[in-house]
Design a protein around this nucleic acid. Structure first.
Length: 117
RNA sequence: CGUGGAUCCGAAACGACCGCUUGGUGUGGGCAACUGCACUGAGAGGAAAGUCCGAACACCACACGGCAGCGUGCCGUAUGUUAAAUGCGGGCAGCGCGGGCGUAAGCCAGCGUUGACGGAAAGUGUCGCAGAAAAUAUACCACCGGGGAACCACCGCAAGGCGGCGACCCGGCCAGGGUGAAAAGGCGAGGUAAAAGCUCACCGCCCGGACCGCAAGGAACGGGGCAGGAAAAACCCCACGCGGUGCAAGACAUAACAGGGGAAACGGGCCGCCGGUCCGGCCUCUGCAAGCGGCGCAAGUCGCGGGCAGGGAUGACUCCGGGUAUUAGUCGCACCUGGCGCAAGCCGGGAGCCGGGUCGCAAGGCCCGGCUAGAGGAAUGGUCGUUGAUCCGCUGGCAACAGCGGGGGACAAAAUUCGGCUUACGAAGAUCCGCAAAUC
RNA sequence: GGUUCCAUAGUUCAACGGAUAGAACGAGGGUUUCCUAAACUCUAGAUCUGGGUUCGAUUCCCGGUGGAGCUA
């Protein structure tokens, strides 16, 4: 899994709820969707990597990079909820720094982090 | 030297920081499930891929009979506990190369290469177009022989005669007919009115076959005028093999009725169908028996009842593309109150490798010990730095190459395990072999 | 993971192993109309890919690619 258990999303119902009820922000490389939880708790992350991205090796690589970014950013996010990341196929060709900066930019647009100084 | 093929090796290296899954030990929390911390070990491939074969293993009733269906298909041998498969050797057939013999048809040996390589004289069906004809060899054109209307020429006064051409009829009849992927033995001679294996020589072919070979098969010799085109990756026939389903198989958590008979109307399973059979249910009988009640001081006896069903609170889980309504199942804890059941939990350790012992001449057999990835919205990683196989650009140089800059490894990731097959794949290296040679 | 199946014009479907691979809708051009629609007419356009069997392959066989269904 790559993330502590409290930060995981494991059921397809959760993904569906976030995509239909949550608010989404799109960038050049990916789309982020967020759904706030009523009760307090930790932020939970999910990743949807479609087969259009490539074969299993490329999908694994991309998911691990996104997971690593989320792992480093998670302590800064105070709100409870569920956040789904859906990258576009071109994201597999981007560098780690490009993915990281866009992901954090989209997270700020969703109001989960204070604006960049 | 170049180039091609096969097999093997190999799958960039090192470091720092931050993480994930999991085994063990210690320790803390919790009733438990579980969870925190510390230390220590393990953590993708040669194809993990495609899912094309096979095996292990598991369950279904240890696996019944027939039909259907599916698979395999030259021979020997080795490896593979068996299988799938692979290696080696051989046979036959096709193609290519050059050579020898022969007037030629053709034959002979050699080298290379290819072959899903049982059967087309068991049966059914197919062979478009073209062509006279496409599988029963018939009709047609043309040819040859006989008869011969009409017409023409000649002779004759005429009747008529003779000759030519010849519709048509009878017979010969497959040698010729520019087609086609394929045309029904070839070639030479004889033969004939013209022809034809009609006859003969040679060659080919078919049948039998001494003998050789483990076998596939080869073959001296003898016989036969020659039938029998192709395709079975068309149906099919023959031989051999196959019970079904796949880890989403399944197992676990003491026990919680047993046996006989009947009916043949029900359900399920063994295989897709039929037969046959098994299990369950139904009816009935016998035995045992929880519980309740009556009688009895008691042992006991009589009757009812009945052999697994019902309800509730809370938390979580299973399931779900979305919505509404409703419901089911499971787990832990607390309940009557245990069990059953269970998709949650847990197991799924099988097979392989290494070492030792022992038996054996050996190949190898047996025993013991150790090692072994176990994830599951799916771990095995992320970032940075150094080095750099190779590549790109620029400059210099005839060239090898040198300098500077850039980029930085191919294909592709376990999902029960193992053996094969197929497909994908960067660089370097190792071994063997071919692109021939020799003889007649 | 396992298992079953499919692939033909832009789309939906045809085609005993033998035409120039056919039809409908769609597309483009033309006729008609003041213009459009409708109608009529013409045209273009395809066998997923690589081998094999066969005289000949969309069809039969074997690899590959892509896609779909079933299975808790």
């Amino acid at each position: 899994m790559g993330l502590p258990g409290t930060h995981r999303m494991t059921r397809s119902g959760e993904y569906a709820a976030v995509r239909t009820k949550g608010t989404a922000r799109s960038g050049r490389l990916m789309t982020l969707a967020f759904l706030a939880d009523e009760s307090p708790g930790a932020i939970r992350f999910g990743f949807t990597i479609t087969k259009r991205v490539g074969n299993a090796v490329h999908r694994n690589k991309l998911r691990r990079r996104l997971r690593e970014i989320a792992r480093h950013t998670a302590p800064s996010i105070q709100r409870a909820g569920r956040l789904v990341t859906i990258p576009r196929p071109i994201a597999s060709e981007a560098t780690f720094a490009e993915i990281q900066s866009e992901w954090q930019y989209l997270v700020r647009k969703l109001g989960l982090l204070p604006p960049a100084p």
